[in-house]
Design a protein around this nucleic acid. Sequence first.
RNA 1: GGUCCUUUGGCCGAGUGGCUAGGCACAGCUCUGCAAAAGCUUCUACAGCGGUUCGAAUCCGCUAGGGACCUCCA
Length: 495
Amino acid sequence: MPLKIYNSFTRQKELFNPITPGHVGMYVCGPTVSGESHLGHARPYITFDIVYRYLTFKGNKVRYVRNITDAGHFEEEGREAEDKISKKAVLERLEPMELVQKYTNLFHWAMKQFNCTEPSIEPTATGHIIEQIGMIQKIINEGYAYEVNGSVYFDVKKYAASHDYGKLSGRVIDELLETTRELEGQEEKRDRADFALWKSAAPEHIMRWQSPWGEGFPGWHIECSAMATKYLGTTFDIHGGGMDLQFPHHESEIAQSTICNHAAPVKYWMHNNMITINGKKMGKSYNNVIKLTEMFSGNHPLLTQAFHPMTIRFFILQSHYRSTLDFSSEALVASEKAFKRLWEAYEALQKLEPANQGAATDTELDARILKWLDEFEEFTDDDFSTPKVLANMFEMAPVINSIKDGLIAPAAIATSTLQLMKEKFRVFLEDIFGLQPVSESNNNTLKAVMQLLIDIRKEAKSKKDFALSDKIRNQLNQAGVLIKDEKDGGMSWSL
RNA sequence: GGUCCUUUGGCCGAGUGGCUAGGCACAGCUCUGCAAAAGCUUCUACAGCGGUUCGAAUCCGCUAGGGACCUCCA
């Protein structure tokens, strides 16, 4: 089945055809490691992890490049441009690279918690200064950049005269020139819309590199262009990132790469929408962020409890990546319960034994299940409609539980249908959606202890010693272990 | 100020012309020593006004609210 992707560049869903059949090059804007990641950051990484996993599932060999921005983006708010990372490094009295390492480690840890696949290549900006300088030089040689006082700027006006600057972000260049806000320290630029490729470093600036234009540091946009070109070629398949990066970051990337490589860099642009909190984008400037460590620990005024990374992953999958997703503790609690129920049904499904005869006795139910299963791929092919796949899974949860509890005969569905169900649930939940069990019920020691307690409780129950039976159940409950009595007299437990 | 997007039941959230999305919460029932879990059932909404259409949450217009970008931002 063909995959369709919404291309932000053309503003429509398009059939996905890799440039080289069977191979996909994908670049995703990674974190700026000058601080801790927050909930909003989780979205693109989980979204594009699904994209990566699904493309792989479809038989592609995917090279997934996600950068680490460790050189810092300059800020233009003050008189002199400041490197964000070196600014904070001074405050925290750390070496810049020590700070960068600390937050890189923390980021990697968070990605692991979310069960995000590691990118094929994770290049750092500081490790590619030479490539960035080379690219800037080429742009100057092409006549689309100019040097002033040790800084280099991209000539947007000249570029726009022959190229469609603003197409990705839906901007008109003339408007842009007029509506760009009044900022200080811009007198060097020929035009307000121009952006920096290289910035001359002030004496107090810690992070600095030698360049043909003097000591300085790279502009914000050039690192992605340089690293994407190096590892994916002049034109590659997918570029992903948050919607807030469309302008100016991605628009500038297109301009730089187009001049440097004489080709449009990206075939499909994908942008995820924002996570909001009380309707407002979660972001540094709004001072409304919840850090991932706070999410996992529950240590934040807006959180009523801690949330497992898988709950957050599931929460994100329950909405379409191009819609805003409104955060609230209540919504997370709902996702936690929903995920638990779905996962328990999934585990029950894997334990179901097929009936002896092959054919279905309830052909109507059997047909419905086959349709639901078939739609897993159909929905995912339609621009990654993960919420619809999950909805179908929830449709099947009562069927699974009913078979398990003997309310529906196992023979109702065909043996082949059951096998297909097991397979499809596993592939989509684990391989593609990257979900994992929350509990530690895989711990063998714990399993053995629980088995003993369950045996004792069963014995007590059979002797109608409900006092003991309840005591075991209640005390375990207090310890966070839930005992469930099942229809057939069996017992199960979960954390 | 400019450009663009959005408004779905108590909450989150799919859905783009006709068919029950789904989840959570709430309520009732079944099962059960009790509870939980599970199953069944109930609640069935599309900001307002007008238009197009046999038919609109879905298309068009206006009004109102919310938001994003234009500045670092996932």
